[in-house]
Design a protein around this nucleic acid. Structure first.
Lengths: 232, 232
DNA sequence: GACCACTGTATGGTCTGACCATATGGCAGC
DNA sequence: GCTGCCATATGGTCAGACCATACAGTGGTC
């Protein structure tokens, strides 16, 4: 009876194209900014229709690998993207919007990541901290909750960068970007932001003095101050 | 001169289609398993070409929102997907493959997540731990590195589930799935896996007895044993 | 020689219509 | 009632056409 013969590999051609393009990127060692061949040329080389190429490129664009631009010249065509973390942001936004994630889960995640990042930044010592100073200054200048949150995100992302772990930094950036709205609401709920600003200075001081435990504690207190309702 | 007339909203029609479909999903309260109209019907309703609809669906598929199936009957067409975390896996795989992420960064991230998850699982107490027992049993039965890693992933993902944070659990699952290859290599490098198995029992015991600190320590030791080269 | 306007062209974006592959639903024949 | 075939709906693919855009080259003007 030949019980389970074979899953009968149902592979759509645009998936093949996708694989070939990925392979080509890897083999040729293409870097961000480099261009892929045009859609028509790719279609001809791979012996497929242009629509299949386009669908593959659309997937790569969704994944943040390439970015398409019409017209002529060096910036036209499918160009390798430098920042592959905006798709992560889209994905998290979808998670937040469609799967009924609770605020508690998001903040818990932030707490986890930021404690790790701050502690590691403090431990490394050799990190570049000028971005942190800039962000603190931006928050001092902020006149709206939006502006304050923008500075806040820059501050915490700079810490993540300083942690020396790019994966965690990427996740951090995407998480903050996709949950920006909640942060703005939280800031608007607070009477004033002086506590938060003091927290930032404390975190920065702990990182500067190379004290991981104090940095982690300061981050935890900071989130407690920003979301008091969650820590009843 | 009409200085800055208008940014001339450069919006590609498939992006409009995308927005309309998302809107429709939200408005109609469509749930996983529900079907979208067919491509031709959507194209007619939105007054666009079928290719634009297809590109929008491709994006939604990449984002894990829908899944397309040919043929006739209730399962055909674009069906809302239930588990939107395989795209996260794709994304992380790309990050791992294309951005030159170091193993150190991946393992550091695992350490961060798993310590958090294990500690929280221990703290909650009310968690469902039978999945952990199953995974431990599967690892005892494992005869190849592949099988062992499969059980290992199940074990650690079950801990993440038991932590009560779905965002962290989703991230954990995607991270492990996308980095499965590295785990298999690591297990193959080890002479035997008895140390790892003992670690698992220790972690499980710590969670059962509700000891967060011990659980976190056990996880840290476990990763040290699995990747000794990274903790020189 | 320097500058500027026009035009040619390469490129992505879209539409149309056709055809293929597949899986279901239903009908005809047994 | 069962079996087997066929109509049909659906996604998958292709080819060709046309549009919008933006650069590159050309030639004219000063």
């Amino acid at each position: 009876m030949a019980a389970n013969w074979e899953p009968v590999k149902r592979t759509r051609t645009f998936e093949d194209v996708l694989a070939r393009i990925e392979q080509r990127i890897a083999e040729d060692g293409l870097k961000p900014g480099d261009r892929l061949p045009g859609e028509r040329q790719l279609a001809e080389q791979l012996r497929v229709g242009r629509s299949s190429v386009r669908e593959a490129l659309r997937v790569l664009e969704t994944l943040g690998v390439v970015s398409s631009q019409a017209g002529r010249g060096p910036d036209a065509g499918a160009v390798l993207t430098s920042r592959p973390d905006s798709p992560l942001t889209d994905l998290l936004r979808l998670h937040l919007g469609l799967t009924g994630l609770e605020l508690r889960e998001v903040i818990e995640t932030r707490l986890m990541i930021e404690q790790f990042a701050a502690a590691n930044a403090a431990r490394r010592g050799d990190a570049e901290l000028s971005a942190l100073d800039d962000a603190v200054a931006a928050m001092e200048r902020a006149r709206t909750a939006e502006e304050f949150v923008a500075g806040d995100i820059a501050f915490h992302c700079a810490i993540a960068d300083a942690s020396g772990n790019r994966l965690i930094a990427a996740f951090m950036r995407s998480l903050r970007d996709s949950a920006r709205r909640y942060a703005v609401e939280a800031v608007e709920r607070l009477a004033d932001t002086s506590v938060l600003r003091a927290d930032h200075r404390r975190i920065l001081a702990a990182i500067r003095s190379g004290d991981p435990e104090e940095a982690a504690r300061a981050v935890a207190d900071h989130l407690r101050h920003a979301y008091p309702a969650l820590f009843a």
